[in-house]
Nucleic acid binder design. Structure first.
Lengths: 239, 239
DNA sequence: CGGACACTTCGGCCCCCGCCGAAAGGTCGC
DNA sequence: GCGACCTTTCGGCGGGGGCCGAAGTGTCCG
């Protein structure tokens, strides 16, 4: 007995990094895929700057965050897509706990922020919300993405990305396509290399723009046309 | 500011359940997909029965474990495949930390246990180790499973399961196929509904049998023949 | 150079939580 | 019914860790 798994301390340590409400709030905020300063995170989390500094130290030491110092600022972001995926998965499970009704935001401000978020947002490096679902559905409908038997691009799907001028950089072991559970739509949307490439292209090409400094994004007129031409998504479906 | 995400406490709470070494050891042990008694887990983790009882209370209350009381025994198991997936994902990330060499077990007993585990084992409800990889590769090679552009069964793959007499019960929102990172092989293997159905069939049909009370499994002579006939896996490749 | 600003370090406080052993509650077998 | 066994409850102990404010370091700007 006492054959205790040598992995237990590591698992506990990793979980411990997320097991604090303040650190959890940071990780969730950083799910927008961008870099935040320590001060922004402190205000966001509602703790003293000194407290947050210690939290960042732990998260960076634990490998969950990467940091970049610029002058008197300390910028941090999620270390990579794997971390984002872990946080997303845990948050999705924690949010959809048994007997728990999703989100239903309270108050007017929450409602409007919520509806903008629900319409379209980034989820680390890919699109989510109704926008993400619409794109995923359109890809599936046109036979470019299998969603019923797993999540994988078809050959036609790979071609489609090439034809649209969106490069799929197969990097290391990150999957080309994977499902990410959408917490507003309760359905999976496209993530992975393809999801990230599509999102990057959508922002670069002006298909959508970020709303303020939030995760929420808005589809532009250009984007509506492009999504209609390339994927047959009805114009006006995402307003 | 202080727009703190309402999900932060839930995320922190969930992570907190796994943030203790003893509880982590329990969760890892339960990854074998079977039910353990409280006493077994206490011995495994090396703590007093009373201590472990409290841990089980938290894990059950948190929804990670389900329990079944039989007489003077309390059997617990992972609540469902989603929990198993979370634990697997976290353990995989924690185990493959930066600059960290995998496993390389110390001592003779660990070596033999390790090699049996590396040869073939269950990973909650599907096959893993070299056996799991061999099956995944064989499915991919025969065009039954896409692995290069994501993880999804092809139409031929769905047919193959039917022809082999393995029912694919599409249940709720669990994906038919998904990738699970193998920590001995460092490559993804087949999980999801299809992976579970295949594993269940393999055990029922005597293709493989469990070694002792471990997660490790051994391929039988019957299994070798079946895997050769159905998937073209070389006999002897898994000894 | 001096002040504003972003962040970090330090000391101290307090609460939380994991641990144990002792005792109690159930269940099984004889 | 009486032990043997598995599990749970309870008190008490000890350590770890999150919090703050104050002071210190480093950077930018005028």
């Amino acid at each position: 007995m006492t054959t205790k798994d040598p992995q237990a301390p590591r698992l506990a340590g990793l979980a411990g990094l997320m097991a604090d409400e303040t650190r959890a709030a940071c990780l969730l905020a950083l799910l927008d895929g961008r870099a935040w300063t320590a001060g922004e995170l402190a205000r966001h989390a509602g703790v003293a700057a000194s407290t947050l500094s210690e939290h960042l130290g732990k998260l960076v030491a634990g490998g969950l965050l990467s940091e970049e110092r610029q002058g008197r600022h300390r910028y941090v972001r999620l270390a990579d897509a794997r971390v984002a995926q872990l946080v997303e998965d845990l948050a999705a499970y924690a949010g959809a706990g048994p007997g728990d009704v999703v989100g239903r935001p309270r108050g007017l401000r929450a409602v409007s922020a919520g509806s903008a978020m629900a319409r379209g947002r980034t989820c680390y490096d890919h699109l989510a919300g109704r926008l993400g679902i619409a794109v995923t559905d359109a890809l599936a409908l046109r036979g470019l993405l299998r969603v019923d038997t797993g999540f994988a691009l078809t050959d036609a799907g790979v071609e489609w990305f090439g034809a649209a001028g969106i490069a799929l950089r197969r990097s290391g072991r990150r999957p080309l396509a994977r499902a990410c559970l959408d917490w507003t739509e309760r359905r999976p949307h496209l993530a992975g290399v393809a999801g990230a490439a599509l999102c990057e292209h959508a922002l670069d090409a002006g298909w959508c723009v970020r709303i303020g400094s939030e995760r929420a994004v808005k589809v532009t007129a250009v984007g509506e046309r492009a999504l209609h031409e390339l994927l047959g998504i009805e114009e006006g479906a995402l307003r």
